[in-house]
C-alpha cells in the first residue's frame, strides 16, 4: 500500500479507537450508560427548574425507540450514500481525464 492509503487507514483507525475506547473501558454511568448529551441537558433543566413547562411539543414523534433509531439510520444512510455516489462520479471523471491526457501524450 502506498503512503496515501496508509495515512487514510490510520485516520479511520484513530476515529474508530476514539469511539471504542470509552465503550471498552466501560465509562458509561447512570441508569442509561452513554445516553445522549442532549437528553442529559434536558434532564438537568427538569431537575433544577421543576416548574418550567415546555410550551411546545414535537408535531411528530417516532412512536418507539426502534423507529427513532431507524430514522437516524436513514439519515446516515442517505448522507453516506450521496457522499459515496459523489466519490464514484468524481473518480470516474478523474480517470477519464487522465486517459485523455495520456492519449494526447
Amino acid at each position: 500500500m502506498r503512503r496515501f492509503s496508509w495515512v487514510n487507514l490510520l485516520l479511520l483507525l484513530a476515529v474508530l479507537l476514539l469511539a471504542v475506547v470509552p465503550l471498552a473501558l466501560g465509562l458509561g454511568s447512570g441508569e442509561e450508560p452513554f445516553s445522549g448529551a442532549d437528553a442529559v441537558a434536558e434532564q438537568a433543566i427538569v431537575d433544577d427548574h421543576p416548574d418550567y413547562q415546555p410550551w411546545f411539543s414535537p408535531i411528530y414523534e417516532p412512536p418507539s425507540a426502534e423507529l427513532e433509531s431507524a430514522f437516524f439510520a436513514l439519515q446516515a444512510a442517505l448522507g453516506a450514500g450521496l457522499l459515496g455516489y459523489y466519490f464514484g462520479v468524481a473518480r470516474t471523471r478523474q480517470r477519464q481525464r487522465d486517459a485523455v491526457d495520456r492519449q494526447r501524450g
Partner: peptide
C-alpha cells in the same frame, strides 16, 4: 456542494460514545 451537504447529514446522525459516559 451536494456532497458537502451529505457529509453534514450523515455525521450529525451519528451518536458516538465519549469519555464522559454519555454520547453525542
Amino acid at each position: 456542494l451536494g456532497a458537502a451537504g451529505a457529509f453534514t447529514f450523515a455525521l450529525s446522525a451519528l451518536k458516538i460514545p465519549s469519555v464522559t459516559g454519555s454520547s453525542s
